[in-house]
Design a binder for these strands. Structure first.
Lengths: 162, 162
DNA sequence: ATGGGTACGCTATAACATAACGTCACGCGC
DNA sequence: GCGCGTGACGTTATGTTATAGCGTACCCAT
């Protein structure tokens, strides 16, 4: 059974933080001359308003709820676009997607701390980790293109609870 | 289409290296008082004799070729066992499995260099990378349990070819 | 023999992902 | 205006990965 996540309450986004992030994404796309179409914007909004990683088929459900239509390729094409623009990240361990905390940067590397108690994911960008991985790859004569670092464990908040 | 991989030629394992690795795995399991059953041994052998990461359903095909039977849970249960014993690793980016280069060590961390030209995966165990990740996790109050590091890129051999 | 534990068989289904092809709207050069 | 290329999207179908849920065979210690 697919987990149900944050089905947009009518009064979602009370502070306007979500809309602000979407607006920044719109601006970034305009700057780059690429099109944040309605579908892509809807998918981005769904990802941002979930406070956990969200899977492709949950996004599909959300998109269908919003627009009445959509098939798997609809969602995957939007995801490909958002990933290429660096607006979201894919969490490999979960086969799921999270918003990028810094939507201005194009395709930056990131590390994720995945709490398997509460399910939340924290995004980091640590230079020392990147440097260490780059160094060891170079000693093997390997040319890195994309680095995935995902740490499974328990976050501080959940340690306090137990 | 599922990739076809190394369908055991009749004269496979000419040097006996494969059988030696399986024998070491048998010995390790015996030492720990766990059972490397026929199914588990077959799945391990299939993983070791593929020189690329191999997916669960390719393993299922191989198992069925060997024994005439097997369903997805058959393979997944064997994989769970082999992972728990540290005899294999899972490559998250590929949803596929590789043999552990050091089958004596129980559940050690590892990093992978994945060549997306030739498809081969190199396993590393770099203390500096582990330390850097542990350090940054601790600054977040996060308790790491399992660390995934996977680097996509082009290996030295494939760079030379181009 | 009985009861517990481990491994395995089996059906079914959830969940993730892509191939392949068609349609439509838009902008551009002419 | 017209033709054309391109990008976005629709649609069908399928491929691939993973697990739930249940039953049974077997070993072995009591």
């Amino acid at each position: 059974m697919r987990p149900e996540i944050a089905q947009a309450a009518p009064d979602a986004d009370p502070t306007g933080a979500l809309s602000a992030r979407v607006a920044r994404a719109e601006a970034a796309c305009a700057r780059r001359g690429v099109r944040l179409t309605a579908i892509r914007r809807d998918v981005l909004r769904l990802i941002l308003q979930a406070d956990e990683p969200i899977g492709a088929y949950a996004l599909l459900d959300g998109l269908r709820a919003l627009t009445g239509s959509g098939k798997p390729p609809t969602v995957y094409r939007a995801l490909d676009f958002l990933l290429a623009q660096g607006l979201i990240h894919r969490v490999e361990r979960l086969n799921a997607f999270v918003g990028c905390h810094d939507e201005a940067v194009h395709q930056h590397a990131a590390q994720f701390l995945i709490c398997h108690d509460c399910g939340r994911v924290a995004e980091l960008e640590d230079a020392a980790v990147e440097a260490a991985i780059g160094a060891v790859a170079r000693t093997q004569g390997f040319a890195p293109a994309r680095v995935t670092v995902e740490v499974d464990g328990v976050c501080g908040a959940c340690q306090d609870k137990s």
